Amino acid sequence: MKWRNISWVWLAGGMVLALTGCDTQPTAILASTAHDPSMNVQPVTSDIVNSKGKKIGTATFTQLAKGVQIDVSASGLKKGLHGIHIHEMGKCEAPDFKTAGGHFNPTSREHGFNNPNGEHAGDLANLVVGSHGKGEVQFVNTSVTLRKGEPNSLLKDGGTSLVIHTDPDDMHTNPAGNSGDRIGCAVIQ
């Protein structure tokens, strides 16, 4: 649902409330949003673990009308930029997370926003980590969905994963933007 439509929903709900009483407001709001299929997909929250299997953060995936909002919060990382991507397998076996496979790439493209043949559906902007070792970021990826059964679904059979790398992503080099070792991983299922 677009943000400008939310105010109309509340306005319509408020008008119904003012005209008919409290008992009808929830019905009016539910009826107004029932046509939006993204409302039927539950958010997914996953723990991010480091190479020792210790939880270092969380990632929450929320279906939007077009794409998926990804909220990441992580700590215990070195200061600077870190590549962060969605990978093709829902496995996060420490210490190197190679079980996550390559980047999620259902359209068979190349890596990076700056690649003329790119980008992978799993490519994301870099995670910025401050001097205190913490990083928080919110992405909206319009190339993926949480709706099961679609070719670009993060909830495909076996799931997918979110991987944090040790170095920044250069946004064009195959296969992973020279982003270095995998240092954090979260299963998306």
Rank of each mutant, 00 (worst) to 15 (best):
K2V: 10
R4D: 14
R4N: 15
N5K: 07
S7E: 12
W10H: 00
W10G: 07
A12Q: 07
A12G: 13
G14P: 10
V16I: 13
V16T: 15
A18E: 07
T20M: 03
T24G: 11
P26G: 04
P26W: 00
T27H: 08
A28V: 12
I29S: 07
S32N: 11
T33M: 12
P37Y: 09
P37M: 02
N40H: 12
V41A: 11
Q42M: 13
Q42A: 12
T45K: 08
I48D: 06
V49S: 03
N50D: 14
N50P: 13
S51E: 07
S51C: 05
K52M: 12
K54P: 01
K55R: 12
I56M: 04
A59T: 04
T60Y: 12
L64M: 10
V68P: 01
Q69W: 00
I70R: 04
D71R: 05
G76C: 05
L77H: 01
K78S: 15
K78A: 15
K78V: 11
K78G: 11
L81Y: 10
L81C: 03
H82G: 06
H82T: 08
G83V: 09
G83H: 04
I84T: 14
I84G: 00
H85V: 13
H85L: 10
I86Q: 09
H87I: 01
G90Q: 06
E93R: 12
E93K: 11
E93S: 14
P95M: 09
D96P: 03
K98I: 10
K98P: 04
A100K: 05
F104Y: 06
N105K: 05
N105I: 00
N105D: 14
N105Y: 00
T107P: 10
E110T: 04
N114P: 06
N115C: 05
N115D: 10
N115Q: 00
P116W: 07
P116Q: 11
G118A: 08
H120Q: 07
A121K: 08
A121R: 01
A125W: 02
A125K: 03
L127D: 04
V128K: 15
V129G: 08
G130L: 00
G130E: 10
S131M: 05
G133L: 08
K134N: 13
E136I: 03
Q138M: 14
V140C: 06
V140Y: 08
V140S: 04
V140T: 15
N141E: 00
T145M: 07
L146A: 01
R147E: 15
K148Q: 14
K148R: 13
K148F: 03
G149N: 02
E150R: 12
S153R: 02
S153L: 09
K156R: 14
K156I: 09
G158D: 04
T160R: 01
T160K: 00
T160H: 08
L162R: 05
L162F: 09
L162M: 10
V163M: 10
V163L: 05
I164H: 01
I164T: 00
T166A: 14
D167W: 08
D169H: 10
D169C: 02
S179I: 05
G180C: 00
D181S: 14
R182V: 02
I183A: 03
G184K: 01
C185R: 08
V187D: 06
